[in-house]
């Protein structure tokens, strides 16, 4: 029987190892798998490379993972948001590495990682400081940069509904990086607001086909990062 359902976030992240590369979904708080991230903080794996669009807000979720000194490097497009305090401080002290990637290049590198394409050419960032060190090639008279695919050892992704095969649907703009991150990781771990029976998700509207997902945990009432930040909460809980 094919059953990808795990009983808890802790069980689902138990084998994440030191030095792993982890893709974490979300655009700001929308789509950020906060319960899975907190389970990873409890678990304690270190020297992680995190691929995510931002670096979290306040002292919960992704920001708390970074604050807990579990992250050696982030690969991201926009490492600051209105309430990000943790990453900027560590970065200024030289205690965390940053690979800054234009957002579309980040998305395409992840997509290619999932699609078996090792690298691709793009005009994004030609003529800017972000072209440094990259191979350049001219197609039809126009310059392009070579960009390499990103693959994860794990992906942590949030969705709305999942079934035990791992078929997923998302909620509005919380979809963002989820579908491509599911494709690009060896082990994709998903927190779903609701786990439903097989067949309850219309095959016509499945967004992530189950083959890209290895583990599903039901988290019926996920916390909202902005509320936790407004209440000045910290993880581990203060």
């Amino acid at each position: 029987m094919l059953n990808k359902i795990y009983s808890s976030p802790a069980e689902a992240v138990a084998d994440i190892f030191d030095g792993a590369t982890i893709l974490i979904s979300g655009f700001g708080e929308a789509g950020s798998p906060i319960e899975l991230i907190h389970a990873l903080i409890d678990h304690g794996a270190k020297n992680l490379t995190i691929v995510s669009n931002n670096t979290g807000s306040g002292h919960v979720g992704l920001a708390a993972l970074i604050e807990n000194k579990q992250v050696k490097k982030v690969i991201c497009s926009f490492p600051k948001t209105a309430n990000s305090v943790v990453f900027p401080e560590l970065y200024k002290k030289g205690e965390i590495e940053l690979e800054l990637v234009p957002q579309g290049t980040l998305a395409e590198r992840i997509r290619c990682g999932g699609a078996g394409i090792p690298a691709f050419y793009t005009p994004t960032a030609v003529g800017t400081v972000l072209e440094e060190g990259k191979e350049k090639r001219i197609f039809n008279g126009k310059e392009y940069l070579l960009e390499h695919a990103i693959k994860g050892d794990f992906a942590l992704v949030k969705c709305l509904k999942a079934d035990r095969y791992g078929n997923l649907v998302y909620n509005k703009t919380a979809r963002n990086f989820g579908p491509i991150m599911c494709m690009a990781a060896k082990t994709t771990i998903v927190q779903a607001k609701q786990v439903v029976q097989l067949g309850e998700i219309d095959p016509e509207i499945v967004v992530t086909p189950g083959i890209f997902v290895q583990r599903v945990v039901e988290v019926p009432n996920p916390m909202e990062e902005s509320i936790l930040v407004a209440e000045n909460r910290r993880y581990p809980w203060n």
């Binding site: 490492p79 600051k80 994004t124 030609v126």
Partner: peptide
């Protein structure tokens, strides 16, 4: 020198 570099989608937008 002390700024946190953050590019977002700006370079993709102007390229495409």
């Amino acid at each position: 020198p002390n700024a946190i570099p953050a590019v977002g989608g700006a370079m993709d937008l102007v390229a495409g």
